[in-house]
Amino acid sequence: MNNTQIILTAEPLNIQSCIDWVMSPESGGIDVFIGTVRNATKGKAVSKLNFEAYEPMAISEMEKIAQKAFDKWPVQKVLIHHRTGVLQVGEVPVVIAVSAAHRDAAFDACRYIIDTLKQTVPIWKKEAFEDGDVWVAAHP
């Protein structure tokens, strides 16, 4: 699919190249979501996050989400890049970029992609607190 780019990588994400990849002469707008590592959770300081993925399934679930976005909205290109490994505060674990002829489709699809990714893609993060590490959302 030359209108979709899905990458799972241990290397830093390049936001500008993500934007460049979805840009096309037919596009009237690009919507970009950039996830960043926050320095706290519920008031407790977080020093870093460790991301782990079930790689083949994570890729296939991200492909499904991208396909669903094309089915639901008139978007032109969809890009999803996600990091694995240890990320420090301020680093970027995820970039979603969507281009479309008109902005409504780009905004809606981008929102749908990040929301669904967080629900279905088998990637896990562990937060490092001063007093120990915790897998996010593992326990009620």
Binding site: G35, Y54, V94, I114, K118, T120, P122, I123, W135, A137
Partner: peptide, 10 residues
Amino acid sequence: IAIIPPVSGG
């Protein structure tokens, strides 16, 4: 077969 605990990517 894989066991998938609650996911937390993004």
